[in-house]
Computed example of a mutant assay.
Amino acid sequence: MHIVTRIASAAAVALFALGGAAAANAAPAIPLNNGQETTDAKGGAHGMFRYTIDGDQFCYTLDVAGLTVAAAAAHVHSAPRGEAGPIRIPLIVPNETSFHVEGCTTVSDPAILAGVQDNPGGWYVNVHTSTYPGGEVRGQLK
């Protein structure tokens, strides 16, 4: 996992470099917390999420601290604030309670990335744990 994260990190760092085309398309930092989740998650976990879209690449940086148990998964879902929605983009995260990860994933359906770009508020990112399989922390994209 760490090797994949490091390789993906190098690609993400290159995309986030100042002056790059992807940096101009970077979304603002998105806070994650329990209060945005629809699962009644508790525990005080929190984090930040950033993403860029370049062609069919969805690149991200995800920082999370204080999960109740190790992360099981993370995804970008389509749904407005206060609603749960289907998984659209899987993200790679380590099996830890606090972490920093950077990566890129290829999204084969251009409608998904167009949807994120056209209406980011209709999408959210969340991190799932065994304590809260529906999501422990969430942040609505912007």
Rank of each mutant, 00 (worst) to 15 (best):
C59K: 03
Y51L: 09
A71M: 04
A70T: 10
L62S: 05
G121A: 14
P90H: 08
C104I: 08
A111Q: 14
R88S: 09
A72F: 07
K42R: 13
G35H: 12
A21Y: 01
G19W: 05
F49H: 01
Y51N: 07
F49G: 02
A21C: 03
G19D: 04
L113E: 02
V76D: 08
G85I: 05
E83S: 15
A84S: 15
D54Q: 14
A72P: 00
Y51K: 09
P94S: 00
E37I: 05
A29F: 05
A21V: 11
T106S: 13
A111F: 01
A84Y: 14
T106P: 02
L91W: 10
E37Y: 04
H128R: 11
V107E: 01
F58L: 07
H46K: 15
V101S: 03
R88I: 03
H46V: 10
I53W: 07
S130F: 08
A21Q: 13
H77T: 02
V101W: 03
V76Q: 11
G82S: 12
I87M: 13
G35R: 14
P86I: 11
P120L: 11
A45V: 05
G47E: 11
P94H: 00
T106Q: 15
G82F: 14
E102M: 15
N126K: 02
G47V: 08
V127D: 01
L113V: 03
W123F: 15
L67K: 09
A84R: 12
A65I: 13
H46N: 14
H100P: 00
N25W: 04
T38A: 12
G20P: 06
T39C: 06
L32D: 05
D56L: 08
Y132K: 00
G47Q: 07
G85Q: 08
R50T: 13
H100W: 03
N33D: 15
A74L: 07
E37G: 03
G66Q: 06
T38D: 03
G121V: 01
Q57S: 14
A21F: 03
D63H: 13
E102R: 14
V107G: 02
P86F: 10
L62C: 05
G122C: 05
G66L: 05
T68W: 05
C59Q: 04
G44P: 03
C59Y: 05
Q36K: 15
G55S: 06
E83Y: 12
L113I: 02
P120K: 10
L62D: 07
